[in-house]
Design a protein around this nucleic acid. Structure first.
Lengths: 205, 205
DNA sequence: GTCTATAATGGGATAGAC
DNA sequence: GTCTATCCCATTATAGAC
C-alpha cells in the first residue's frame, strides 16, 4: 500500500460501478428518470459527474441496464421456483406467492420497470417488453393447463393472466411491512382471491 | 369583425386555455411531466412559450389542475351512476362496469394520475390522494355491505378493494378498441372474475 | 392575449490533467 | 479511475412592446 489511505480521490472500480447503479435505481424510482440529473447521481455516489461515464456510456444505457437486470433476475428467480410437473393448482399458488414476495422486496426496480418504459429508446423498449411477455406467458401456460385439464374455469386466458398480474403487482403501491398485515397473511389473501377467480365452481347470479 | 381573419397573433382566450390543457395532458401522458418542456406544450398549442403563463402560474399548477379535474370528474361520474339502495351484488357490478368504461375512455388522464404523483408538491399530492381515497372508500362500502349481509365472503375488505381496483385499472395498459375483444365482452369477463372473487361459495382446495 | 427577448439556472457529455 | 473545467444547449419564468 503505497498510496495514502484517507485520500478523497483515486481508483475504486469494483466499488463505484455497483454504487452508481444503486444510486441511479433509488433516484430514478423516487423522482423519475427524466427528473434526475447525472450530477445528482454523482453526488449520491460521492464522485464528480464526469466519473460516471466510466461506468455507463450515457444516461439512457444506465436506465436500460437497470430494467434489463431486473427482468433477467425476475425470470431467473421464477425459473428456479417453478415446478413444471406439479398440478396447475399448485403451480398457480406458487406463482402468486412468488410474485408477491419477489415484487415487495424490489419496489424500486418494479416501479422503474413499469414507469420508465416510455423513456427507453425503441430498441430498448422492445427488449424489455420481450422479457415481460415471457413472464406473462409463464402464467398463461399455467392457466391454460388448468383450463384444459378441467380444474380451472377461465373465460379468457390472456385477460385472466393480465388481471392476476395487475392485481398482484398493485400490492406494491400500498403494502408496508410495518402495516396491519404480514407478508404471509397478505399472500394468503391474494391466493384465496385468485383461487376463487379461476375456480371451476359455478357462482350463483 | 374589424380584425384580419388570417392573423397569426391576437386574442383567443376562450380557445387557448382549453387547448393548453389538452396539449399538456397528451404530452405529459406520452413523455412524462418532467420530460416535457413548456416550449413543447406551446408548440403544440401554436403559441410562444411565454403566452402559456396567461393560463397557468407555472408548470406544476398545470399538472395539478389536470389531475384534480380528473379526480373530480371521476367522483362526479361515479356519483351519478351509483345506486345506493340496490343490492351489494348489483352495486358491485355497476362499479366494475363503470370503472372499466370510464377509465378506458380517459387513458391519458388515468396514466398521469397514477404516474405523476411524485411530481406533485406535498400539498397537491395530499389533495389528490384524498380524492383517490374517496373513490376507494366507495368500493369498500359496497364490499362491506355485501360482507355484512352475507352475500359476499371477503377475507379483507381493504385488500380486496385494492385488488379489484388494480386489476380493473390494469386494463388500460393493454386494451385496444381494435383488438380481439369488445369493451362489453371485456367488462363481462372482468365482472365474472370479480363476482367469483367475492362469492360466498366455498372453493375446493 | 400574444409576442420577442432575455435572465438565471441547470442539463448531458467530453477533454485533458493527475 | 477520478477530477476540474468547459462546451453547447435547454430549461422555467419574467419583462416590456404591441
Amino acid at each position: 500500500m503505497l498510496e495514502p489511505m484517507a485520500r478523497k480521490t483515486g481508483s475504486h472500480a469494483e466499488q463505484t460501478g455497483p454504487r452508481v447503479r444503486t444510486a441511479a435505481l433509488q433516484l430514478f424510482s423516487k423522482f423519475g428518470y427524466a427528473a434526475v440529473s447525472m450530477r445528482q447521481i454523482a453526488k449520491e455516489v460521492g464522485v464528480q459527474a464526469g466519473a460516471l461515464y466510466t461506468y455507463t456510456p450515457d444516461k439512457q444505457a444506465l436506465l436500460f441496464d437497470l430494467m434489463r437486470a431486473h427482468m433477467l433476475d425476475l425470470l431467473d428467480a421464477y425459473g428456479r421456483v417453478a415446478r413444471k410437473n406439479a398440478s396447475p393448482h399448485q403451480r398457480l399458488e406458487d406463482f402468486v406467492r412468488f410474485h408477491i414476495h419477489y415484487h415487495i422486496d424490489r419496489a424500486d426496480e418494479v416501479f422503474i420497470s413499469y414507469m420508465e418504459l416510455r423513456n427507453l429508446t425503441q430498441d430498448h423498449f422492445e427488449a424489455i417488453e420481450a422479457f415481460r411477455r415471457r413472464y406473462e406467458a409463464a402464467l398463461e401456460d399455467i392457466l391454460r393447463a388448468g383450463q384444459e385439464s378441467g380444474v380451472f374455469r377461465v373465460s379468457d386466458v390472456r385477460v385472466t393472466s393480465m388481471a392476476i398480474i395487475a392485481m398482484l403487482t398493485g400490492v406494491n403501491t400500498w403494502f408496508r411491512d410495518e402495516g396491519r398485515l404480514s407478508r404471509e397473511a397478505l399472500a394468503d389473501i391474494y391466493w384465496d382471491m385468485v383461487a376463487r377467480m379461476i375456480s371451476g365452481v359455478e357462482v350463483p347470479a
